[in-house]
Structure formats: C-alpha cells, structure tokens
Amino acid sequence: MGRGKIEIKRIENNTNRQVTFCKRRNGLLKKAYELSVLCDAEIALIVFSSRGRVYEYSNNNIKGTIDRYKKATSDASNICTPQELNAQFYQQESKKLRQQIHMLQNSNRHLVGEGLGSSNVRELKQLESRLERGISKIRSKKHDLIIAETENLQKREVHLEQENAFLRAKLFPFEQIAENERLQQLSMMPGAGQEYHAIQHYLARNMLQLNVMEGVQASYPVPDKKTLHLD
C-alpha cells in the first residue's frame, strides 16, 4: 500500500501534534544540512515550538546570516544615493570613534583610581600590571636623562676650564714674565727663602697647566696677533 496524503491543517490531538512536530522538525533540519553541503548554500533555520522552545541550525554564524539577510532586503527595497551611502558610512565611523573615545576615557579614569567600583579582580590585576609597566618605563627614562645631563655638564666644565687656561696663557704672558722677575728679586732678599719656595711651587703648577694647554691649541681659534691690543 502506498503512502496516503494527509490534509494540511492543524492537528487537534496534542500528542499527535507533538509527535508530528518532532518528526518533521528533524526532517527539516536534515534537509537544511543536506542543502548547505550539496549546494554550498548559506542557511540559517530557526524553529519555535508551540511551547516556546527554539530550535536552530546554521552552517555559518546565524547572526551574521540574519544581518546579511537584512542588508540584502534593505538594499532591494531602498536604493540609496551615493550621498546617503557616504552619510551612513561616516555615521558608522563616528559611532566607532565615539565608542573608542569612551573606552579610552574609562581607561584613563581607572589609571588615576576613579570609577573602580564596578571592576572585578581580573580587571584590577590587569590595571595593576599596566601601572607597574608604566612606572618601570618612567624610571628607566628618568635614569637615562640624568646620566646624559651629568655627562653634558662634566664635558662643559672641562671645556670651560680648558678655554680659561688657554686665554690666560695667550692674553697675559708679560705679566707672568714680570712676576718671575719679581720672584727672583725676592729670592735675593734675606729671610725670603721659605716664601720664595712656596711661590716657585705655585708657578711650577701653573706652567704645567700651560704646557698641557699647548697640546690642545689646535682645537680652539687663536686670536690674530695683529688685532691683539695690550694697554
């Protein structure tokens, strides 16, 4: 005997209706799966029973398929002008930027210790790690700057001392000669031996500095002898 056709209408018997629902639901889900595999079709199937239970099948993300369906139906029903499409695009970009700004503002508030009442332990640990990394970078940068500034000051002090000694050696040679003659006269006076030796020690130290500076004269501009005026 062949399979008889049934009348398509609501089944009044609750038991028969539930059994028919289960059988045909499973068959529908099976056919949807076969269609998606055989034809490489994107399918989203949603079924709600009379009791409110939901059954669904999708070979892709079901939300993505629904969004694609909404977009397709919207494009078919509403043909937008290029100006309207640009406006929609900029509205979406503006919405994304506002969300990013809101997230950054919340992040900055958390870094200064505000708005932490709703944060859980995991979020607080992440915030603590961020603060520790930031403090470590700041300390490292501060240490490097202090070392660089100290080296620059030391180089500048050495440079100024060398310039000062060089200028004294070039601008006051006659005063040193006169001072040597005066010391020789003092050495001939009675009772001036101890003072003379102290002054000689001082001059020997100055002459040592001048000899050292002679080796670095090439690094500095030498004043022109024609333009040197002595009063």
Score class of each variant (00 low, 15 high):
residue 141 K to N: 11
residue 29 L to H: 02
residue 1 M to W: 06
residue 24 R to H: 05
residue 136 S to V: 05
residue 184 Q to D: 14
residue 59 N to K: 03
residue 13 N to D: 14
residue 83 Q to W: 02
residue 20 T to C: 06
residue 77 S to E: 15
residue 108 N to P: 00
residue 156 R to I: 01
residue 140 S to G: 03
residue 219 S to H: 09
residue 57 Y to I: 04
residue 3 R to P: 02
residue 51 R to K: 15
residue 165 A to N: 14
residue 122 R to K: 10
residue 146 I to G: 00
residue 27 G to W: 00
residue 158 V to A: 06
residue 195 E to N: 05
residue 121 V to D: 10
residue 38 L to D: 08
residue 99 Q to H: 05
residue 15 T to P: 01
residue 48 F to T: 10
residue 119 S to L: 15
residue 141 K to L: 13
residue 16 N to D: 10
residue 90 Y to E: 14
residue 128 E to Q: 13
residue 148 A to S: 08
residue 112 V to M: 12
residue 76 A to C: 07
residue 158 V to S: 09
residue 78 N to Y: 13
residue 46 I to P: 02
residue 67 D to F: 11
residue 123 E to Q: 13
residue 129 S to Y: 07
residue 79 I to A: 14
residue 159 H to D: 08
residue 85 L to R: 11
residue 89 F to N: 07
residue 42 E to F: 15
residue 139 R to S: 13
residue 26 N to D: 15
residue 150 T to V: 03
residue 156 R to S: 08
residue 119 S to D: 09
residue 93 E to M: 10
residue 100 Q to Y: 10
residue 63 K to G: 09
residue 186 L to C: 12
residue 121 V to C: 03
residue 217 Q to C: 09
residue 86 N to M: 12
residue 54 V to Q: 13
residue 155 K to W: 05
residue 209 Q to W: 04
residue 108 N to V: 11
residue 214 E to R: 06
residue 157 E to V: 06
residue 122 R to I: 00
residue 142 K to E: 13
residue 164 N to H: 12
residue 158 V to E: 13
residue 162 Q to H: 08
residue 155 K to M: 13
residue 196 Y to N: 02
residue 102 H to V: 00
residue 129 S to Q: 12
residue 4 G to C: 01
residue 183 L to H: 04
residue 71 K to V: 02
residue 103 M to L: 11
residue 206 N to F: 07
residue 8 I to F: 13
residue 179 E to F: 09
residue 9 K to F: 01
residue 10 R to T: 09
residue 123 E to F: 06
residue 89 F to Y: 12
residue 176 Q to W: 09
residue 179 E to Q: 09
residue 146 I to S: 05
residue 206 N to I: 14
residue 196 Y to S: 13
residue 69 Y to N: 07
residue 206 N to H: 02
residue 209 Q to V: 11
residue 166 F to M: 14
residue 80 C to N: 14
residue 225 K to F: 08
residue 166 F to I: 15
residue 112 V to I: 15
